[in-house]
């Protein structure tokens, strides 16, 4: 059993939890993920590691309530426990001194860019964070991000805060002002990662994306998370989750993510009496 040390509601559907998992915290690196199971009837769901503290043994996860499992997780409180918390999984981000690095986070994708930004900064890079949110009230981790980067650019779709528009507009603005970008890491909804990769392809900027396909075990034994990268079939859980965004078949990824949509809504209706769903 793994204890929930702390729970915060960051917006009506976004929650942050610190999970007591000292061994995971000891080994975790930026870019890796965990797989958790809420209870004995639960499914295994992957979540990217948003932060870790080797001293306190806590691992931070940030999640959005989108289905039955995240709803059940959100209903738990500090002091409660979940049955399984497996990790760290996947390959760590490649961290070295590239020069100028931009991390782009969309929605709750901001959370996993945080440890990457911090590690990039520690490695001696100039780090610029672009944080995208639909509206001001669902923006997360702004203060944390400011503390580990040289510059933070916030965009909101409706212009309610920061720059009006999408994260791709912010990338373009950096390019326009003459910023020489050596690498971009983009994490968020697939459509956002695809847009960033499309935008940077012609600019010739190396772009890393963190993929979020459906997973079961997260250890390479089932291939449920397979994605096409260039000419190769890769398992995101062991070969990734980070890949060269210019080689990823985003269309295939989006299609496979929809595989259980009908069953998921059926399942959500089945247990959905707790009023968290919007």
């Amino acid at each position: 059993m793994f204890k929930i040390l702390k729970k915060e509601e960051w917006s009506p559907s976004v929650f942050a939890m610190e999970i007591e998992a000292p061994r995971v915290a000891r080994k975790a690196k930026a870019g890796q993920f965990i797989v958790l199971r809420v209870d004995e009837e639960g499914e295994r769901i992957p979540l990217t590691i948003a932060d870790f503290n080797r001293e306190t043994g806590a691992v931070l996860i940030v999640f959005q309530v989108i289905g039955a499992s995240t709803m059940k997780l959100a209903a738990l409180n500090a002091g409660d426990s979940i049955v399984d918390f497996v990790g760290p999984l996947g390959q760590p981000s490649e961290i070295e001194k590239f020069g100028t690095v931009v991390v782009v986070g969309g929605g709750i994708g901001v959370a996993p860019t945080y440890p990457i930004a911090r590690a990039m900064k520690e490695a001696g890079n100039k780090v610029i964070a672009i944080m995208g949110a639909k509206t001001k009230d669902i923006l997360i981790m702004e203060e944390e991000m400011k503390a580990v980067t040289d510059e933070v650019v916030v965009t909101t779709d409706d212009g309610s805060y920061g720059m009006k528009g999408f994260v791709t507009n912010a990338v373009q603005a950096l390019v326009d002002r003459g910023e020489k970008i050596d690498q971009i890491t983009a994490i968020g909804p697939v459509i956002m990662m695809k847009s960033v990769a499309d935008a940077t392809r012609d600019l010739g900027i190396r772009t890393i994306v963190s993929l979020n396909p459906i997973m079961v075990d997260g250890t390479g034994m089932c291939g449920g998370c397979r994605v096409q990268v260039g000419d190769e079939t890769k398992f995101a859980c062991v070969d990734g989750p980070e890949f060269d965004g210019h080689l990823v078949d985003f269309k295939g990824l989006m299609s496979r993510q929809r595989m259980y949509r009908d069953l998921e809504s059926q399942e959500k209706d089945h247990v959905c009496n707790i009023g968290l769903d919007r």
């Binding site: 009837e41 639960g42 499914e43 295994r44 039955a68 499992s69 079961v216 075990d217 034994m221 089932c222 291939g223 449920g224 595989m259 259980y260 069953l263 998921e264 059926q266 399942e267 089945h270 247990v271």
Partner: peptide, 26 residues
């Protein structure tokens, strides 16, 4: 599916008892 994924969903995750168990199978 790989047989591993199909059988893991069914045997380990008890997808044959969905939605009592949360893992789906198609």
């Amino acid at each position: 599916y790989s047989a591993n994924e199909f059988l893991t969903r069914c045997n380990l995750m008890k997808a044959y008892r969905f939605p009592e168990y949360a893992t789906p199978i198609k």
